[in-house]
Design a protein around this nucleic acid. Sequence first.
RNA 1: GCGCUUGUAGCUCAGUGGAUAGAGCGCCGCCGUCCUAAGGCGGGCGUCGUAGGUUCGAUUCCUACCAAGCGCACCA
Length: 493
Amino acid sequence: TTNVALVLARPLGQSPLQIAESIKTDLEADDELRAYLAKIEVAKPGYVNFYLQDSYYQKSLAQLQAQGVSMLRPKIGQGVKVNNEFISGNPTGPLHLGNGRGGFFGDALTRVLRFANFTVTNEYYVNDAGEQVLKLGHSIKKNAEAVYGGEYIEELHQKFAQIADVKEAGRAAAQDVLQNIIQPTVEHKMHIHFDNWFSEQSLYDDGLVDAALEVLAKNAKTFEEEGALWLRTTDYGDDKDRVLVKSDGQKTYFASDCGYLLSKIRRGFDVLVLTLGADHHGYTKRLEAAARALGFTGTLRINIVQLVRLVKDGKEVRMSKRAGNVVAIDELIDAVGHDVARFFFLMYSPNTHMNFDLGLAQERSQKNPVFYVQYAYARICSILAKAESQKSKIESQEIDLTLLTHEKELALMRELERFPELIEEASRSYAVHKFPHYAISLADTFHSFYDACRVIDEENIELTKARIMLVLAVKVVLGETLSLIGVSAPEKM
RNA sequence: GCGCUUGUAGCUCAGUGGAUAGAGCGCCGCCGUCCUAAGGCGGGCGUCGUAGGUUCGAUUCCUACCAAGCGCACCA
């Protein structure tokens, strides 16, 4: 359908219906279109509705069968290098639910972009250089300046409290947290692979922070005031200018960020993607400012993921034995399972302030639509397995797809047709939450088809063959959709 | 005080400058010789937070207000 006639009414000074009619007349005269269109209709205020012929969908299905999933992959990412940085939780304790949500989002985004032929590097920024390492040191030494608590601090206390220097103790502990808590959680619990664990300390070791300060000074974006060095971020819409080097000569965390941005720029990325928790949204302006001041001319996309509120019996839960004052993502995954946790987080648009009811976590997991989707996939596999066992009867070269004219078959083919445009749209808008919704919708259409149309019918071998081809196509697309969001596609349930 | 985000069905959430605003869950009823009933079919009278504005048309854009979350360091 198109509303173009409504939009054109004013500039053309004609009535929408008049314009719609003339569009209809023109298009109906087009021989090429006539091959695909069953009819064109003008509706009430001025819509033009197009009806595709069944043969269009049948051809499309045959094409998918012949070319496989690669035909669904848009070219829009060809030759574009993307750096996708996400989670980047401090190495001072377990990852919390907000990290989890951002993690699943970033990972799914990478999967979608890669499917659309972008070249993506997944990166985790490890804040192993700053003040928080010192805070961790104090915490494991349990002295007056301790800030972190929880079971893991006990363990770190046992291991590293004897190290005399606080900073050294903090470094050792941070390394331990990264290797024994964060990385296992990310890789084994969340099923996320990072190409790069980028160390903040390495920026100093490699001179990138100083290099960034030089570039910024050269671009005349810095100034000195009250003994400190500032970046004029207000030139780029920030509320206030930001300090790079404090009056005591210490570089700020923001200086590290500038070094990190310079590293990404020098590595030649066309697109820089960052996903931040909503508690860091105040940084977006200064990061954008820094990137531009450093001379970055590519695309910078900062995604803000709203925090997750954990609720139990209608009240917010904050305490966790494991992590101290937050609930750890690995605990949640242990409680509901990876697929459920992932699907649940990914279903919601990043700017939804979502509530996760822990009290209903188990129950919710039983009712989670992920099972509905996976069940559709398992059903497909079951049908195909049975078909395989009767291969001799249904095997043949000629498959007549024009037999697929049932209302439910056409509905299913139309649903499949949505997938390619969804990829394109999502790789532009980063709206990855559309995929869980699509998966539900496709599963829904399939279940309905399944109920109405028996696939394997020994009385009607020709129809059986055509339907198997349709079912195969659904398997490919549904399987790909699940793979894009990182949820498993089980052959049996 | 300023800024960002959010306010849509009982609950959790999609959605759109346009045609009767959708899904899941919950609730009610029906469907079993047959490829997995973790399924299907039917049942929704919603002030799209409130009030204005722009528009032929606003739930969608703008302004104000109300409510919620999060920010506003020479912290990280």
